[in-house]
Amino acid sequence: MGSKDATEMLAANAAGIARAAEILRNGGLVALPTETVYGLAARADSAEAVAKIYEAKGRPSNNPLIVHCADLRQAEELGQFAPATRAAAQLWPGPLTLVVPLMQGADIAARVTAGLPTIALRVPAHPIMHAVIEAAGVPVAAPSANRSETVSPTTADHVVATLNGRIDAVLDGGATACGLESTILAIREDGVGEILRPGPIAAEDLLRIGVALREGRSTTIEAPGQLSRHYSPGKPVRLNAQEAEADEFLIGYGDVEGDFCLSSGNLEEAASRLYAALHDAARSPEPRIAVAPIPHEGIGAAINDRLRRAATE
């Protein structure tokens, strides 16, 4: 992709929202804040606009995109919702992506689904993202706003670090709240769900609202975030470290103190700070990264999922 002029920085106000919506309607790319991470948005009904996402990110063509909708009604125009899927949609708006059969004749660019018979849909809770979708008048495809395989962005500065000059604009809404990408859930034909990517919505949250789940996860690429190597800070990562070795940047948690502390013991706080820690570690002079043990419960399962992928060579 040829270099653009410097990426335009937009404020989180009415003028910034209107400008972002205008760029999207015209087929451009805008990085937008969500409650999870910043997303690189393009109108999902334009093949040309969606192609720009893959080009700007250097994203593999077999990795599908999540489509962000204004509400359930708009999502139902693109995908087929079985009763069990509707039960899960109680958690919308929020950090939950549902993989559903693609609606026949849906006005969606083919590359969004990467040739699959399903589509990944989400209704975001972030007020700025929601306002831009409403103003643009179209659903938007929006993977994380970073170069492929690098650490996902939780601030506008993180976006600019890898995409400046490659996209049209960034709408700066401050640091994101959740700090991890959405949970991705597929409801199978028997009405039982499989979590394809853990995230802020934990299995316990889904069970609480009556969504049946089975153990195990599909090895077929059905949704974003299933590649074994992802979220890479560009340095070797050692997990479950109790202390740092001489050449390591230590990311601490709980009783393990480090160069960057995720939290003294709150997993939600740790999740919101994880990518900021990995960005700091990537910029540090130490050639390697170590990470303290993270409890594998609630959103801790999602944190460990991202760390495992970051540590994969």
Score class of each variant (00 low, 15 high):
residue 2 G to Y: 07
residue 2 G to A: 12
residue 5 D to W: 04
residue 7 T to P: 07
residue 13 N to H: 07
residue 20 A to P: 09
residue 24 L to S: 06
residue 27 G to S: 05
residue 30 V to L: 01
residue 31 A to R: 01
residue 38 Y to I: 04
residue 50 V to S: 11
residue 54 Y to T: 14
residue 57 K to G: 12
residue 67 V to A: 08
residue 69 C to S: 03
residue 77 E to D: 11
residue 81 F to Q: 02
residue 101 P to E: 15
residue 103 M to H: 15
residue 107 D to Y: 01
residue 107 D to N: 14
residue 112 V to A: 07
residue 113 T to R: 12
residue 115 G to T: 13
residue 120 A to E: 01
residue 124 P to F: 05
residue 136 A to S: 15
residue 138 V to P: 07
residue 142 A to W: 05
residue 143 P to S: 08
residue 144 S to F: 02
residue 145 A to I: 10
residue 156 A to E: 07
residue 162 T to E: 03
residue 162 T to S: 15
residue 166 R to I: 01
residue 173 G to M: 15
residue 173 G to H: 14
residue 182 S to T: 06
residue 187 I to E: 02
residue 197 R to Q: 01
residue 203 A to F: 07
residue 211 V to S: 11
residue 214 R to Y: 01
residue 215 E to T: 13
residue 216 G to Y: 06
residue 216 G to T: 13
residue 219 T to P: 01
residue 221 I to C: 09
residue 224 P to G: 02
residue 224 P to M: 04
residue 225 G to V: 00
residue 238 R to P: 01
residue 238 R to M: 06
residue 239 L to V: 13
residue 240 N to L: 11
residue 245 E to T: 11
residue 248 E to N: 09
residue 249 F to V: 12
residue 250 L to A: 14
residue 258 G to D: 06
residue 259 D to T: 11
residue 262 L to P: 13
residue 266 N to A: 13
residue 268 E to I: 10
residue 285 P to I: 10
residue 286 E to H: 09
residue 294 I to Y: 08
residue 303 I to N: 06
residue 306 R to V: 04
residue 306 R to C: 15
residue 310 A to K: 03
residue 311 A to V: 13
residue 313 E to L: 14
